[in-house]
Design a protein around this nucleic acid. Structure first.
Lengths: 251, 251
DNA sequence: TGTACATTGCGTCATATTAACACATAGCAT
DNA sequence: ATGCTATGTGTTAATATGACGCAATGTACA
């Protein structure tokens, strides 16, 4: 959660942080990028502070970039969390010392923080998880197997997934999560994983193709068991257009 | 925008404010509660600060209560606005003097603020617009005739309406905006006003009744020109249930 | 080599939902 | 009485959805 090269707290917007729920899709699993601190092995969402001269959206992009190496990613603000006691008693003096925080900065870290939640959809294979502190671990974890998280990060994660599910009814998803070439069954698995329920193969094909955002390639997936499925790619222009105008119906 | 009985700035969460877009429905118009300061006649959304020991949701409820006298109202957080320069140069030293802000507090008011947007749906006839400062005006204004607003309040208002339109597809609306007894044409007008387009009378009736949240009363509207329309009320239990589970289709 | 099996691709059909419209009724105005 | 306007109810065609059937393709293995 904390980042190195920390500036003096005066350079940050006081009492404000950003937490990112970064989703990736791999091995038919929806995964979330989580961070384990070296201090006490507690897990958290990647997050950070907002510089005093930085837009909040820019700060979110910057956190995402520093953790995945990626830019130009689908990133959306979904909620702000501001219960008084959400970060009460989180940082002990011991932990702050561990992170190399000077004594005079302790008060700042122990003060009340409001956090803005962003969720991102990233191409799993292109992301390079990046630790920030020595001893820190950054890992992709199946969203079904997320361990206990610090603070209200579990609530933030749940809300992000809930938002993603709702927005699946309003926009197409996949361009950001899948490789350039993919099969319809893979896309279906993605939808099923996000929604948490199965969909009928044949109805899915009909519906997803009728949106008009897919280009059928003259190529089949190789090295697969059973019948080789056709490869598709997204028609970026039409995809963007539908993203902007919204879908008319949901799943 | 500012409130009297201001506490010392140290009692507030620094750099954080809340702005409320309060919608009401009257005379077939969707209206927004706006505030005109006595200082320079500029218009703004009702807003306020967050006490250091107050949840953000509680702060929003409190602003709503102080401006309308209402509690237990539909209130939803929809976005947080945090561009660096969003409140740059807003408060002149003159204006702060006008509002009775001591000199030593000036810096606080001129610092960067991030604001959390909430929108509310309230029963127009039950709300009692309440001024907070002498010289201040609080008025319901048709959302089509909103004057120029301070800061990024126009953007906040637009985003609130956009969110409301989207959420109309996910939940029923009306319980919070209409009187206890109402007619189907009135409810339709509400939907049309929010959506900004007309709907077919007969299709609307079929769809809205099929949701199962309406109770047809054995009573007709009186004192109307032309044929007297039937009165309806909401079935609160079923309404709440649908609010929680969501609608399956939209408009 | 050929048979079983899992998966994909394409199609069908009954039902539900939506959009567009016709017509009768109620109440006011003249 | 007659016209005007808005309400209440019904009809129909087009479209979308949900639940399947079945053939084709490629692997595994007897």
């Amino acid at each position: 959660m904390l980042k190195t090269h920390l500036k003096n707290s005066k350079e940050y917007q006081p009492g404000l942080s950003i937490d990112c729920v970064i989703f990736g899709f791999d091995d038919n699993q929806l995964k979330v990028l989580l961070i384990k601190t070296g201090y006490d092995d507690s897990w958290s969402l990647p997050g950070g502070f907002v510089s005093i001269d930085e837009d909040i959206d820019t700060a979110a992009v910057s956190i995402l970039q520093s953790r995945t190496g990626l830019t130009g990613i689908f990133l959306r603000q979904f909620a702000t969390f501001g219960k008084v006691k959400r970060n009460q008693d989180h940082f002990s003096s011991d932990s702050l010392a561990y992170f190399g925080i000077p004594l005079e900065e302790e008060k700042w870290y122990k003060s009340r923080f409001v956090t803005i939640g962003y969720y991102a959809l990233v191409n799993f294979s292109k992301a390079i998880p990046q630790a920030d502190n020595p001893g820190e671990m950054v890992e992709w974890i199946d969203h079904h197997e997320v361990p206990e998280l610090i603070l209200d990060h579990r609530e933030i994660l749940d809300k992000a997934l809930e938002t993603l599910r709702t927005e699946l009814n309003l926009m197409p998803v996949g361009y950001n999560l899948l490789p350039e070439k993919f099969t319809i069954p893979e896309l279906q698995k993605l939808y099923e994983t996000i929604l948490g329920r199965t969909l009928d193969r044949r109805n899915f094909l009909r519906k997803i193709t009728s949106i008009g955002i897919l280009t059928k390639l003259d190529e089949k997936k190789s090295n697969v068991a059973h019948k080789a499925p056709n490869l598709y790619s997204f028609d970026k222009d039409k995809y963007e257009e539908v993203l902007k105008n919204g879908l008319t119906q949901g799943w």
